[in-house]
């Protein structure tokens, strides 16, 4: 192509030199200055959130993060979603079962069998889907309010707490949609169980 005089001022050598200097400059700005400035401001303004939103129990002991799901094997606690990584917060993930994968069907069948054993009074048709599916992160801290409700008869029987009282407890711990419209209603399993433990039990 015909280059005009204006273009010729930029030589190939000077392009590489400028490229090198601008690369180094933005490595420093975007890779060091920006994340450090962000960290400083975040720690100054929002120390609780910036350090993982940790939760304490009644005695003041840190028992986990509000945002990271935990495994509850004891049937007298509310149980969260299935996690193929057993809620190990050092990692994250799931089995990535395709809807057509036979392993998925086997796992669901096992969950149903276990449900029938532990909750004889609640039929499978009442069981919400989120309680028998693996969350995407493997760390989902929430279940739907319906999933908490169906566990009430079991927990009531094991802890000798009236069902009405547990229903109230679930209601208190149900978070609405964000700004009243975004996302889904949900119950934080760890906080619900902390409240459940604080009720004491009569077993």
């Amino acid at each position: 192509m015909k280059t005009t005089a204006k273009f010729e001022e930029v030589t190939h050598g000077s392009i590489w030199m400028t490229a090198l200097r601008s690369s180094l400059l933005f490595i420093v700005i975007c890779g060091i200055a920006y994340p450090l400035a962000s960290t400083g401001l975040a720690q100054l303004f929002f120390p609780h959130q910036a350090n993982g939103s940790m939760v304490k129990d009644a005695s003041g002991r840190i028992v986990g993060s509000e945002l990271i799901g935990q495994t509850f094997t004891d049937p007298s606690f509310f149980q969260g979603r299935i996690s193929s990584i057993d809620n190990d917060g050092a990692g994250s993930g799931s089995n990535n079962y395709a809807p057509s994968n036979p392993e998925l069907l086997n796992r669901v069948k096992e969950s149903i069998a276990q449900w029938e054993k532990e909750n004889p009074e609640v039929p499978v048709s009442k069981l919400p889907v989120d309680l028998i599916t693996n969350s995407g992160s493997g760390l989902d801290p929430h279940i739907t309010p319906a999933s908490a409700d169906v566990q009430i008869p079991r927990i009531s029987a094991l802890r000798h707490i009236p069902e009405e009282q547990l229903k109230e407890l679930v209601k208190e711990h149900t978070e609405g949609r964000d700004l009243g419209v975004f996302g889904e209603k949900r119950v934080n399993v760890l906080q619900l169980n902390l409240a459940l433990q604080a009720l004491g039990n009569n077993k």
């Binding site: 069948k109 149903i112 048709s125 889907v129 989120d130 028998i132 969350s135 989902d140």
Partner: peptide, 20 residues
């Protein structure tokens, strides 16, 4: 396939999704 096992389907597909 999951609905065929007698599970209520109104929630949609939740495998791999987050409740929130």
């Amino acid at each position: 396939l999951i609905h065929d096992l007698g599970i209520n389907s109104t929630q949609g597909s939740m495998e791999g999704k987050e409740v929130r």
